[in-house]
Amino acid sequence: MVKNIASYLVVVLTICVLIQVSFFNKETVDLSKYSTNGLVYNYTVSPNSSIIEGIDVSNDDYKCFSPFLGKSFVGFKEAIAFKESGGNYATINTYGYLGKYQFGKETLKLIGVRNVKMFLDNPKLQEKAFIANAQRNKWILRRDINRFVGKRVNGVLVTESGILAAAHLAGAGSVKKYLRSYGLDNFADGYGTTISNYMKRFSGYDTSFLKPNKKAKVNTL
Rank of each mutant, 00 (worst) to 15 (best):
G162W: 02
K3M: 01
L221Q: 06
S203V: 13
G104C: 09
L69F: 08
N42C: 01
Y62A: 11
V113R: 01
G192P: 10
F68V: 14
S208K: 14
V21K: 12
P212A: 10
L98E: 06
N88P: 00
G192Q: 11
N42H: 06
K200H: 14
A165K: 06
Q126S: 07
T28Y: 07
E27T: 15
A90H: 14
D121L: 10
Y97F: 14
I5Y: 15
R147A: 07
K26D: 12
T194W: 05
V158Q: 12
K177L: 12
S85D: 01
V11C: 05
S181D: 05
R180P: 04
Y205C: 04
E84N: 09
S22H: 03
N115R: 12
Y43Q: 03
S66F: 06
Y62C: 00
V10R: 12
Y89V: 14
C16D: 13
I92Q: 10
F68E: 12
L110V: 05
T107H: 07
S22T: 13
L179I: 12
Y8D: 14
L98Q: 04
V10W: 00
G54H: 06
W139D: 10
N186G: 03
R114C: 00
S196I: 00
L98Y: 00
G38Q: 02
F202R: 05
M1H: 08
T91Y: 04
K77A: 00
A166V: 11
Q135M: 15
Y89E: 13
Y41R: 00
N146M: 09
V40F: 00
A132E: 03
E78Y: 09
I195P: 01
L69M: 06
I195E: 02
V10I: 15
S35I: 02
K176H: 15
T94W: 01
N213A: 10
F68P: 00
G173D: 03
D61I: 08
I51D: 06
C16W: 14
N48D: 13
L39F: 02
D206N: 15
S174H: 15
I131M: 08
K3T: 01
I19T: 07
T207N: 11
G38A: 01
M199Y: 03
I140Y: 14
L13D: 06
R147S: 03
K109I: 00
L125D: 08
D189V: 11
E53T: 13
F187P: 06
Y178H: 10
N37C: 01
Y97T: 04
P47I: 12
G155N: 05
G171S: 13
S66I: 05
I55P: 10
N122Y: 06
T36S: 02
F202I: 08
G150L: 04
F82V: 00
S58A: 12
L157Y: 01
K26G: 08
N25L: 13
N37F: 02
E160C: 08
L179N: 09
G54M: 06
P123D: 04
N4H: 10
S32Q: 09
Q135G: 04
V156A: 11
T107C: 05
E160D: 04
E160N: 07
Y178Q: 03
L157N: 03
F73T: 06
T107A: 12
S58K: 14
R114M: 09
A167V: 00
F82W: 06
